[in-house]
């Protein structure tokens, strides 16, 4: 039982990290960025490239090395996210929503099949073996590296929440999400803040990609597709546009999958978790923490 929860939390924290970027981008420019899952894939490939260029990393060094690579991958994917927004989305900011959505799907295919051309269609082994040194807590078998992954994910989410809720830039992000033109009148450089959101969201997805590569041990050019859909689902379940909703939705999805796989078998995992999510949305269409604002004129 506890083991199922722990496994669910690990996978769920990847979902949460990816869902956060989805949710933030949707919140600020109302775009479903279907290329977001592929940023996760790019993060994994950036980690792969850096690690392979170093050659082997001794198992004892694997965790510090992973943290350095994580940071590097976050910077690279963050910049890629900014570039995508600049080239593919900003020129269409005032076009019908559908046009930008199609562009996002186009960006997604470009990234997926671009990587396929560069690295080939077959899965690659992620060249870091996490030490499997582990211990028992509360009846759960927890490995040190799993613990590191979950802690890193938690720290990233904590830092993000702090930025959005307590800083000047975060206040500007929330303001643009509510009324971009009014934010503009308050002297907010709207384009710059949107670029910042793309940087942060993409960096979180990139971090999740590296972590997933290390966790599962293999990566491929389509690995972002399914997690993109799942993170999108997580964001909607939590209440899209709401940060805590994205975190909660991701963890919930991870837990549901973990229990579904254990109770009904792996092949029923998605059936189980998505059936429950449909039930949740039936009763709470705005998502668990979705905004229902009291407004009065």
């Amino acid at each position: 039982m506890m083991q199922l929860i722990w496994n669910g939390l690990i996978v769920g924290s990847f979902y949460s990290l990816v869902a956060l970027g989805y949710s933030m981008v949707y919140g600020i420019i109302k775009l479903l960025n279907f290329a977001h899952g592929d940023i996760y894939m790019l993060g994994a490939f950036v980690g792969f490239l850096v690690l392979s260029s170093f050659g082997g990393i001794p198992a004892a060094m694997s965790i510090p090395a992973l943290l350095v690579i994580l940071l590097l991958a976050m910077v690279v994917t963050g910049l890629i996210g900014v570039a995508i927004e600049r080239v593919a989305y900003r020129p269409l900011r005032s076009s019908p929503r559908l046009a930008v959505l199609i562009t996002a799907i186009g960006v997604s295919f470009t990234l997926e099949y671009g990587i396929r051309q560069l690295f080939g269609p077959n899965p690659r082994a992620f060249p870091v073996r996490l030490s499997s040194e582990s211990f028992d807590v509360l009846g759960m078998r927890v490995s040190l590296s799993q613990l590191v992954l979950v802690v890193v994910a938690a720290v990233l989410m904590f830092v993000l929440a702090h930025i959005v809720e307590r800083t000047r830039e975060g206040r500007a992000m929330r303001a643009i999400a509510l009324d971009p033109q009014a934010a503009h009148l308050m002297g907010v450089n709207v384009n710059r803040v949107i670029a910042t959101v793309f940087f942060i969201g993409s960096a979180l997805a990139g971090a999740a990609g590296v972590m997933a590569g290390a966790y599962y041990g293999s990566i491929d050019f389509l690995m972002g597709f399914v997690i993109g859909l799942k993170a999108f689902t997580a964001a909607v379940i939590g209440g899209i546009g709401n940060l805590y909703g994205a975190m909660l939705g991701g963890l919930l999805l991870g837990l549901l999958e973990s229990f579904g796989a254990a109770w009904l078998g792996g092949e029923w995992r998605d059936v189980f978790s998505f059936a429950i999510l449909i039930v949740i949305l039936t009763f709470k269409p705005t998502g668990l923490l979705g905004a229902r604002v009291v407004e009065r004129m």
């Binding site: 206040r171 929330r174 509510l178 033109q181 009014a182 934010a183 407004e295």
Partner: peptide
């Protein structure tokens, strides 16, 4: 601006 345009959920 006209219509106040305050940030309603802040």
């Amino acid at each position: 601006p006209e219509g106040r345009r305050i940030f309603s959920t802040m």
